[in-house]
Each structure stands twice: as structure tokens, then as C-alpha cells.
């Protein structure tokens, strides 16, 4: 089974965001593999272990994104691809078209990704990619079963659970609850450094930056207005609750 995972390196979710010079400051920030992509990598490794084949992890990003790929390799992925050609950086339109160019001459049975990245939170790139590759997708998947080419996935649809059927090849976006991603073992980390890492540029992928230029652009980045410290209510439980109900009803007017 030829299994691919598209992943992204993102800020650790415990990082505070600082805006400097109109941009989110990256200095000193801890980068991790996008948490949703960890579920995709874990599922890919499980599929390979059950069915044979190989897991290739692919990302678009700067040189530092290699660390996220190494993490995936240490977890058990077999090969990695880092597309760090800056002429191919842009928006979700750009990323999906660059990935589609990468997949053009590949043979794949299943492509897995996180259902969104915790930085941009758009959730566009994976679904766009499936459309560009002309394969179906199943989004926000919390359970996956594959028999031959038959796929049965459970997906989270706003709290409801949908059981969806389909056939390989297809693309899956992973939702929390799909599995418990493993931690890389020491042996895994040591092996990861010896696994192949490919770094194709625009020419290798047969795509030009102009052809995939971003359709959207950011005019401004800003922080939400900071909140003044709230009121800690004093008194016994009954008094505090009475005051709270009063405040919600008459001051905040949210009841």
C-alpha cells in the first residue's frame, strides 16, 4: 500500500502569539508537528504495518519544517519530502496546487492529513488537493477501516457521527479521536536521521511559482483587544451566586 501523509509544522499550541512589524513573531517559538497531522501519521503507520507498503511524509515549508518530518520518520514513516522552494509559498490555492504537482507522477492508495492546521485553521489545502487529484475525500475522520479497496470511515459531523463508505484511492483528513499518536522511540529517532529526505524545487515538480500564485493575501495581522481583569465575587456561596445571576441579567444582559 502506497501511503502518503501531508503535514505541516506549526507553533506549539501553548505558545503565546506576539505581533511585531505587522507579522506574527517566530523568534524563540517552539515548533511542532501540527497536532492533527500527528493523527494522520499514526494512522498511516498503522495502515502500513497491517497492509505492507510504505509511508511517505510530505510538507511545504521553510528549512525548519524538516524537524516535523524527522519526527514523523522517528515515529515510523519511511521517507520524507520537504518542499522548501520559496517561489512555491503562498496560500491554500498555492499549497494544494504544489502538492498536486508533486503527486502527479506518484502512485498512491491513500493520502492522509490533519483536518486543519492549528495556525491558519483554514482546513482548505487537503480537500483542495483531493479535488485537484480527482479523488474523493472523507473529512474529519475519527475511525478508519480498510478491506482491500473498500474504505469505511467514521467522521465527526458537528457532534454527530457519520459512517461513510468509499473506495481507494482517496484522501482522509484526521480528527482528534482517530488514534493515540505514538511518541518517537530512541531507536526511532536514531533511525530517522538515516531515512531518505527528498527536497524537490519548482523545476523538479514541473510547476512555476507564477502559475500557482496566491489568490488571497493578508493585509493586516492584529491581536484581539486585551481584556481588563474581571471581578472575583466575594461572600458565601449563596450570596456570590445571587450576585452573579444579577450581574449576568442586569449588567451583562446575556440572560
Amino acid at each position: 500500500m502506497n501511503i502518503f501523509v501531508c503535514l505541516k509544522q506549526t507553533f506549539d499550541t501553548e505558545e503565546k502569539i506576539v505581533v511585531e512589524g505587522g507579522k506574527v513573531k517566530e523568534d524563540g517559538v517552539r515548533f511542532v508537528m501540527n497536532p492533527y497531522d500527528e493523527y494522520a501519521v499514526e494512522e498511516a503507520i498503522k495502515l502500513r504495518d497491517a497492509n505492507g507498503g510504505s509511508v511517505t511524509v510530505v510538507t511545504i515549508g521553510p528549512e525548519r519544517a524538516q524537524e516535523a518530518l524527522r519526527t514523523a520518520l522517528a515515529m515510523g514513516a519511511d521517507e520524507a519530502v520537504l518542499i522548501s522552494d520559496e517561489s512555491l509559498f503562498g496560500d491554500e490555492f498555492t499549497a494544494s496546487n504544489v502538492l498536486a504537482a508533486y503527486f502527479k507522477d506518484k502512485s498512491y492508495d491513500i493520502i492522509l492529513t490533519g483536518n486543519q492546521a492549528v495556525d491558519s485553521g483554514s482546513g482548505q489545502t487537503a480537500i483542495r488537493l483531493a479535488e485537484l487529484l480527482n479523488i474523493p475525500h472523507i473529512g474529519t475522520v475519527t475511525g478508519l477501516e480498510i478491506n482491500g479497496t473498500d474504505v469505511t470511515a467514521q467522521r465527526d459531523a458537528e457532534g454527530d457521527l457519520e459512517v461513510v463508505g468509499g473506495k481507494l484511492p482517496l484522501l482522509i483528513t484526521a480528527q482528534q479521536g482517530l488514534n493515540d499518536p505514538r511518541y518517537p522511540s530512541l531507536i526511532g529517532i536514531r533511525k530517522a536521521n538515516k531515512k531518505p529526505l527528498e527536497t524537490p524545487v519548482a523545476g523538479d515538480l514541473g510547476v512555476s511559482g507564477d502559475a500557482v500564485a496566491a489568490k488571497s493575501s493578508v493585509l493586516e495581522t492584529f491581536l484581539p483587544p486585551s481584556k481588563a481583569a474581571g471581578r472575583i465575587l466575594e461572600g458565601d456561596n449563596a450570596a456570590r451566586v445571587t450576585e452573579l445571576v444579577n450581574l449576568l441579567k442586569n449588567d451583562a444582559k446575556v440572560l
Binding site: F11, V24, V118, G121, S217, F222, P224
Partner: peptide, 18 residues
């Protein structure tokens, strides 16, 4: 001009689409 959250609302951006 569209306003949207990034980092789940830790920050926001204003965007245009061409």
C-alpha cells in the same frame, strides 16, 4: 476585506481575495 482568526483566535488577519 475579510477578517478571520488565526491560531484559533489568538490573533486575527484581514484578507483580500483576487
Amino acid at each position: 476585506v475579510f477578517t478571520r482568526p488565526i491560531y484559533a483566535g489568538k490573533a486575527f488577519t484581514k484578507n483580500t481575495v483576487n
